[in-house]
Design a protein around this nucleic acid. Structure first.
Lengths: 162, 162
DNA sequence: GAGAGACTACTCGGATACAGTCTGTCCGAGTAAATCCGG
DNA sequence: CCGGATTTACTCGGACAGACTGTATCCGAGTAGTCTCTC
């Protein structure tokens, strides 16, 4: 079980969008060029994020994406779920029902104990992702990346945004 | 991202094995019949659990699997990792390296901030799974399943174990 | 009757096909900007 | 020179192939139990 790399791309792109001047758009083409990844495929990841309502798009020249909410209101979980879906990582098929010496409908009362444990772990994972917003990420990056590097990247992007 | 159903099968089978009289074996065929799942494919899941050293197998008539450790020493995480592998759920491909305005080898110092967040969530998930052992599961089932039902299942299995 | 040897039948383990999803690509609908023309 | 209609070029969005992992199945190597034969 491994997350698809669209998740990674979506996270990096949202991180970049969070650093943009308010109201400006950045196109898929520029984002793909910036990260060195295939433009057409990245487009699909951004579509998912867009459909989840985290970013909004505009068409035409100087079009692209921008965050539709403050960076502090967008969590890692939002982005991950936008790409991967909200379904739980563990799918209980209730194979208990097939046990020959049990009456039909045995599992109706209460979810399987195994599923409960797995779902609890899933909840812990999601809670951990929900605890970090794009604003938090921005702060982390501020200490990670030297100021001159950050400025160089910002300038590179500023030259290309709409 | 969703766990393969082999994980579910492995967990249920280990749960059954944990309830066996000490030293007795239970065959894949019986386990598959008990759960109503394809025998040949279940075999692959049990192979993985066996290779991880959680259960041990014996051949011949009345052969099969049994736990190789006390139930309290086998955690959900052990079983999940046996089937899914120990790799982290988030794979950082360091696309930062491709950013055009950065020198090569920029990512060598420290893992990506995004990866750190994702890995932390992964760690939370694993910690939650590590906290529950098969012995704990047995206790949960004791309150879930009526005594007569449990006995009927046990008898059904007792008739068929080696 | 007891013990040793051969046989049988059942087990696990790895090697082999099929399917579904993830990855990657393409083209069309739609729009904001730029251009051109008339006043 | 200014305003509006037109053209243009660029964007997103969904529809379309290829590759890889997950699913399902098969058959062979090996062993515990059983049976038989001999003592």
């Amino acid at each position: 079980m491994i997350l698809r790399n669209q998740v990674e791309w979506a996270l990096h792109c949202c991180s970049v969008l969070a650093g943009l001047p308010k109201g400006r758009y950045l196109s898929t083409k520029t984002l793909a060029e910036f990260h060195g990844i295939p433009k057409e495929y990245l487009s699909k990841a951004l579509q998912a994020v867009s459909q989840a309502g985290l970013v909004e798009a505009t068409l035409g020249p100087s079009g692209g994406y921008r965050l539709s909410k403050p960076a502090s209101d967008i969590t890692f979980l939002d982005i991950v779920e936008a790409v991967e879906g909200k379904a739980r990582t563990f799918n209980c098929t209730n194979i208990r029902d097939n046990i020959p010496c049990r009456p039909a409908g045995f599992c109706d009362e209460k979810p399987c104990a195994i599923a409960r444990v797995m779902w609890q772990a899933d909840a812990a994972w999601r809670a951990s992702l929900r605890a970090v917003s794009l604003a938090d990420l921005k702060d982390m990056l501020k200490t990670d990346i030297p100021a001159d590097q950050a400025k160089r990247s910002a300038d590179w992007l500023l030259d290309r945004l709409g």
